[in-house]
Simulated scan of single mutants.
Amino acid sequence: MSGICAGRVVVVTGAGRGLGRAHALAFAAEGARVVVNDLGVGLDGTPDADSPAARVADEIRAAGGHAVAHAADIATAAGAASLVTAALETYGRLDTLVNNAGFLRDRMLVNLDEEDWDAVVRVHLKGHFLPLRHAAAHWRAEAKAGRAPAARIVNTASGAGLLGSLGQGNYSAAKAGIVALTLVAAAELARYGVQVNAIAPAARTRMTERTFATTMAAPATGFDAMAPENVSPLVVWLGSAASDGVTGRVFEAEAGRITVMEGWRPGPTADRGARWTPSEAGERARKLLAEAEPPGPVYGT
């Protein structure tokens, strides 16, 4: 197959359904050989008898592409290591890692159990860190051996991690952590030829089907604005060699819209060159807030 990812080997986690499946199919359509990872759990992360990874891999092969299924838990060190090993043993190389796996356990904070906090932070944040770490170790070794890669990592954040979302304190915190992880990884791994970016997608998946109903499609044009396939073109480009020079960035992707998100940066400031009293600090803080841009609203408010 020809395409902007021809010859590249791409790993996609959580690729059995929704966004991950759309990404895997889109990479394959652009010539990539794809490792399709999915543990096959339910929406809340509990065991499921289904094997979506194998189904998606079969779908790619039926269309003339190359894919292999991987069903290990990437939030464990062994599972994440085996993900990299699967790419190397099957296709002899690894070029792109797309971290996408996740699930929800939504509760208001006063009702959020420690187990639900740990489970969501584990799959989203740890499930990004461990595959990233093992892939980065491989690429560092390649670079030190004189085989500098054109490697790419695409992480999956969320608007909830940028603005917060009511009833999703665990998910919002994990996604915010993914943004910070992306920035650190981009800075640390650049010397090895690795670019790291993140997307904050909005699409209809199992996790968002209550929010983005099928009725949001535009019948006049046939364009389904909330289809997960709308997000994948940006992910494929970020995962390709064509994105050379783009790293440490966060993009929102929804329907036909792409937005470069601009993170925390200094706003109005005051420096008296000495210690403030509490009253003085409060008075000046109010003046600075009056000059500052208001924050975006938390989702659900």
Score class of each variant (00 low, 15 high):
H134Q: 13
R107N: 15
G127T: 11
L125Q: 13
F129M: 05
N170W: 11
V110F: 13
V110E: 13
D118L: 12
R133L: 14
R140G: 00
V120A: 09
P149V: 01
P149H: 06
A148D: 00
G169V: 13
A151W: 08
A151T: 09
H134K: 08
A148C: 01
Q168L: 07
L112V: 02
V154Q: 06
S165A: 15
G159W: 06
G177D: 10
A145H: 09
V123T: 14
A148S: 08
I178C: 10
M108G: 03
G169D: 07
S158W: 00
I153W: 04
E188D: 14
W139Q: 11
E188R: 14
H124F: 02
T156F: 05
A145M: 07
G167Y: 00
A145R: 12
W117T: 01
T182H: 07
V110L: 14
A176M: 06
H138A: 07
N111R: 15
A174S: 14
V184C: 10
V154F: 11
A151P: 13
G161Y: 00
D113G: 12
L132D: 11
G169H: 03
N111Y: 15
L125M: 05
A160V: 04
A160S: 15
K144T: 12
Q168T: 04
N155Y: 07
V123W: 00
M108D: 13
H124V: 02
A180L: 09
A135V: 10
D113C: 02
A137F: 11
Q168F: 03
G127F: 05
L163A: 08
